[in-house]
């Protein structure tokens, strides 16, 4: 389905297509957004691709490359103060997974991938160094 929308005096060309069951692609100008349904039947953003040139649009794959396993690592050192997710839980992009505390800074580590929690590698009150694995998603 192709359409045009107007937002704050600017127009955008939009194209919506169903790639396969439960995978929806929405193209907004030169950007593709891929959505899937979560366990609550809500549409959830799972991937986004920017296409800066016409050449890369022609070469682009229709279906996003979803990695088999994704590790969420911490970029900073600290102590795990709270784990917000459970084994088997489906995580959305932007969802906080762990809070780390260091020097009175509270750091909400968010997931930048969609997936299901396969393993939680840390425990509350555990010290972690920067780069250490926190969560593995499948």
């Amino acid at each position: 389905m192709k359409t045009k929308i107007f937002l704050k005096d600017k127009s955008y060309n939009i194209e919506i297509s169903e790639i396969k069951e439960n995978l929806l692609k929405v193209r907004v100008e030169n950007e593709d957004y891929f959505f899937s349904k979560d366990e609550f039947d809500r549409l959830v953003l799972i991937e986004r691709k920017d296409y800066p040139s016409l050449e890369s649009i022609r070469k682009s794959e229709v279906v996003p490359n979803l990695p088999q396993e994704k590790e969420i690592k911490t970029p900073i050192a600290g102590i795990v103060s709270k784990i917000h997710v459970k084994d088997g839980e489906t995580i959305r992009i932007g969802q906080p997974v762990i809070t780390l505390v260091a020097m009175k800074m509270e750091n909400e580590i968010i997931s930048e991938s969609y997936g299901r929690v396969k393993e939680i590698e840390v425990k509350e009150k555990q010290f972690v160094n920067s780069g250490e694995k926190l969560i593995i998603l499948e």
Binding site: K73, P75, I76, G94, E106, N107, I109, I110, E112
Partner: peptide, 13 residues
């Protein structure tokens, strides 16, 4: 009192 809170993703912060 000071409280610094960070929202940390792989690429965003």
């Amino acid at each position: 009192g000071i409280l610094v809170e960070n929202i940390v993703g792989e690429k965003s912060r």
